[in-house]
């Protein structure tokens, strides 16, 4: 290696070092500390390091904890599927049916509620879905309902709140994918005799798979780790994993158990990544 190259590398490394050190000190080391803590136990009010898997065994044997994993997975999967199904047509309509000069406006409008505060967004849905809320009053007003039905503090409310957010996110990723496709794909398919539906199903849909999968993975990560939405909208009738973690931290002060639950949560995200990575790598020309 020449001395010029060596000094260039030294400079480059000096540039990268601060960010690396920060990530090491405040991300990797804390994560390690958390994993260590998950191997400890709460005895009385003292945390005692035991280096055993007691907390993990408890998570998978205690029905109230195990249920949290399933609640979280069910909610996350439902949200992801519904959001993709709602967002794809929206992104497609904006990308292909809306005149080009209004597209930017349409997309900005479609994600406008992003700019409300995240806590406030869930609160706003609580206003809409409550017993005396706008939705019930309206449904009773037009004669569809005689009396309000319970949506707040159910899983349905959590799912609605989540879907609202993730439809916006997925619309963005799928739209970004759609507009970078050459219009010639659709032209070529039509030219070779494909109907509009065939073009959509055989050509456009497969080509947006990377956008869908990227969005679905993001949805999974953000949804399964979110505490606010299930807490405000879903209430305490069934607890998702983040709610369980916060419960351990708050009322019980069981830090080791909260850490173990977090490690399990992390493992679920890693599994989701492994499942979608194959698609995220989808070849493009």
């Amino acid at each position: 290696m020449s001395s010029i190259e060596r000094s260039e590398r030294r400079t480059a490394f000096a540039f990268v070092a601060p960010a690396l050190l920060w990530t090491l000190a405040f991300f990797l080391v804390p994560f390690g500390a958390m994993v260590l803590l998950s191997l400890a136990h709460l005895e009385g009010r003292e945390i005692v390091q035991a280096y055993d898997l007691g907390n993990y065994i408890k998570i998978f044997t205690d029905p109230s904890l195990l249920k949290g994993i399933f609640v979280s997975l069910e909610i996350t999967m439902t949200v992801t599927v519904i959001s993709v199904l709602l967002a794809w047509p929206l992104a497609w309509i904006i990308a292909t049916q809306v005149p080009a000069r209004y597209q930017r406006l349409a997309i900005m409008l479609a994600v406008l509620p992003f700019w409300t505060s995240y806590v406030v967004r869930s609160y706003a849905w609580a206003l809409v879905l409550g017993q005396n809320g706008v939705l019930m009053q309206w449904l009773i007003g037009i004669g569809l309902l005689d009396a309000p039905i319970q949506i707040m503090a159910t899983r349905a409310a959590t799912i609605i709140g989540f879907v609202h957010f993730f439809v916006m996110l997925l619309t963005l990723t799928i739209y970004a994918n759609l507009i970078q496709l050459s219009p010639n794909y659709a032209r070529a398919a039509a030219d070779l005799g494909a109907s509009g539906w065939q073009t959509l199903r055989l050509v456009i849909l497969p080509l947006t798979l990377p956008g869908i999968m990227t969005g679905a993975f993001l949805t999974f990560v953000l949804c399964i780790g979110d505490y606010i939405t299930p807490q405000i909208l879903g209430g305490n009738n069934e607890l998702s994993m983040p709610q369980l973690i916060m419960l351990q931290l708050g009322r019980r002060g069981d830090f080791p158990m909260a850490s173990a639950l977090s490690v399990v949560l992390m493992a679920l995200v890693t599994l989701a990544y492994a499942a979608t990575a194959r698609w995220l790598k989808m070849d493009r020309v």
């Binding site: 050459s182 010639n184 794909y185 032209r187 070529a188 398919a189 039509a190 030219d191 070779l192 005799g193 494909a194 109907s195 050509v203 497969p206 080509l207 798979l209 989808m282 070849d283 493009r284 020309v285």
Partner: peptide, 20 residues
């Protein structure tokens, strides 16, 4: 007459080969 019903086919500048 729509492209699919014409006795023509087009070879596009970017080829538009279906990558999948």
């Amino acid at each position: 007459v729509a492209p699919r019903n014409r006795p023509t086919t087009t070879m596009f500048q970017d080829y538009a080969l279906f990558p999948h």
